[in-house]
Design a protein around this nucleic acid. Structure first.
Lengths: 347, 347
DNA sequence: GTGAAAGCGCTAACAA
DNA sequence: TTGTTAGCGCTTTCAC
């Protein structure tokens, strides 16, 4: 039988109220009493019953993460895990639990509705927004505080988000490749209904426009982020009449496929062709069996998780405050797979 | 303001008691009344308040998963995500939430203690048991129902687990390679403090003993499951005096490294050397840019998740029932990376 | 078959 | 600064 507030109060000869206040850091309790209470709580191994606290306060002390099991837009990546770790850290520090709901894509909205209706969470983090994302409208109508990891265009920007500057990072990556003499850059992107992918494409195009280099639609492919896509696309492009001299790819998993395609054709990355992948997704790309930038990447994902958690907790406390919107700059990782253009027909 | 039980009862001219009973499927309520209640609940969009239910019943209606953020023994893999999806499915069907706690390894036991003390979960699933795993003893002493995904040797087998037959699958993989004429099989294993890794090693050794083929310790390596390990180990072994003709590796991520090592040395998988990885971890291994066995693997992980969830829910209902222990056979995936031994010195 | 009433263990007005 | 009291919204004896 666990010791409860009542027991503790009796032991100390105090009222439950005072004990509760002491424990919860209310200012009106005297330091002497607080000390006695904290000491007693420790001695009796008192742990408040979370269920009772939740009912009494009307708060769930939990944040929800709804993960659709879409095999296509694989959320399964180390970055995501680090994001969760970062968020989890912050939650733990703030006394929140992390409620995860893994559902089929078609049940996604219902999952939010249910969380809201049953009051099992106080707020949610939304991952990977898509164009015209219905989740945002839904969460607003439910009055459930939320923060979006990512963001999207639209007339209504009255919600909190945290995003990395996808457009600019791809713009800069393309610029770098142009500076190295490349002119035909393949873009292997994720599904362009995903906001991040659309922005990356925009950055790629912008770089072309800025130098008045025509962007060849034949070089711009988008599909699910798998090694298979990277391999097939890489093979096809490299074997084509006018192959690219460099690849700009949207995820390390696609990059793995490109690397294999290059190897299959006897081409060497960083020498014959260049390859850049987004920092946010970088992993096993260099040729040494090392994963040097990986940990940096992972820690940045962790930081994003932490920050998103902070933001959602803030919004729970102050639902009507102006929504925080943060755009983060990220570095692209060039690693060992990028070099000057060696192709003779690149002018 | 959400509609609550009281409102619903008033609307229907019934007592809260009857409405509650009707909703929760108690037998003593008449069919007519139950119908009226269910209809009314739907009409008014009644959703029970989870916090109140939890307090009243004394159950959390949640299952905990504690994930240590050990970068070394990366839990970050698609298999894990599918396991979670399977578990999540079952939870949702049974009205349970999934509470995830991502903590530093040293805080792992505390996470369980806290879950138990605060009553935020009714049971937990333990992942990846290690030799002499302290979590099991702890959970027993806490009286928190649990099921282990994986298992371990030890005098006390009085706990529920679900495991795949790691030993037998590696035994069979080695047998297959022997049948193909290979004699020098490298084993690139995960950390052998992990139960699954120890069992895989045992299976590998057993196959050797059965054919009276000496197992060369120089060919048996164990380290963290990274591409880097696979690459370095692959390179080193393949360049050695007496290289292996086949690799038996414990995870697809290690296999990626081996593949790269082979390619670096101009060797072709499936022709010059063979490579088998465990079904449970298979991913991007074949040479076609396809991931054929992947979905099968993933669905089996999902099934394991479902089953573990079922087991833990059963144990919550019947904590004193004899623990369920299930050993699953799995297939190894041979894919396109395995062929007869071509090496002349394999006799 | 239905209802009244007493909690579940805590928090938070309000009063002292 | 501390205590009294009334809930939070549901479940569950117990009585009818």
């Amino acid at each position: 039988m666990p010791v409860k507030l009542k027991d503790l109060a009796q032991q100390l000869g105090l009222s439950q109220t005072t004990v509760s206040r002491a424990l919860n850091g209310y200012p009106e309790v005297s330091e002497a009493t607080r000390d006695r209470v904290l000491r007693g709580a420790r001695r009796l191994h008192y742990q408040p019953n979370a269920r009772a606290q939740r009912l009494a306060t009307g708060r769930a002390m939990a944040i929800g993460h709804v993960i659709p099991t879409a095999t296509k837009y694989a959320l399964v990546n180390p970055i995501f895990a680090d994001f969760m770790a970062g968020a989890g850290e912050t939650y733990a520090g703030a006394g929140y639990d992390l409620l995860m709901s893994v559902v089929r894509e078609e049940d996604e909205l219902d999952a939010y509705r249910q969380m809201a209706a049953r009051g099992s969470v106080d707020g949610v983090i939304v991952h990977g927004p898509r164009a015209e994302d219905p989740r945002i409208a839904l969460l607003k109508s439910l009055g459930l505080p939320f923060v979006v990891h990512g963001r999207l265009d639209g007339p209504d920007q009255s919600y909190a988000w945290l995003d990395i500057n996808n457009g600019r990072s791809f713009r800069r990556a393309a610029d770098l490749l142009f500076d190295l003499g490349h002119r035909r850059l393949a873009l292997l992107n994720g599904p362009e209904v995903m906001d991040f992918a659309a922005r990356r494409r925009a950055g790629y195009l912008e770089a072309h426009r800025a130098r008045a280099i025509p962007a060849d639609p034949a070089l711009m492919l988008a599909d699910e982020m798998t090694e298979g896509f990277g391999f097939r696309a890489g093979l096809e492009l490299l074997r084509s009449e006018a192959p690219p001299t460099a690849f700009l790819v949207s995820s390390y998993i696609i990059a793995l496929g490109v690397r294999r395609a290059a190897e299959t054709l006897g081409l060497s990355l960083g020498t014959d062709i260049s390859l850049i992948t987004h920092d946010d997704d970088l992993s096993y790309l260099n040729n040494r069996g090392e994963v040097p930038a990986f940990s940096a990447t992972r820690s940045s994902a962790r930081e994003a998780g932490r920050r998103c958690a902070e933001i959602v907790i803030e919004r729970i406390a102050e639902p009507d405050s102006p929504p925080l919107q943060e755009l983060w700059e990220t570095e692209l990782t060039i690693g060992l797979s990028t070099g000057p253009c060696r192709s003779t027909d690149a002018t």
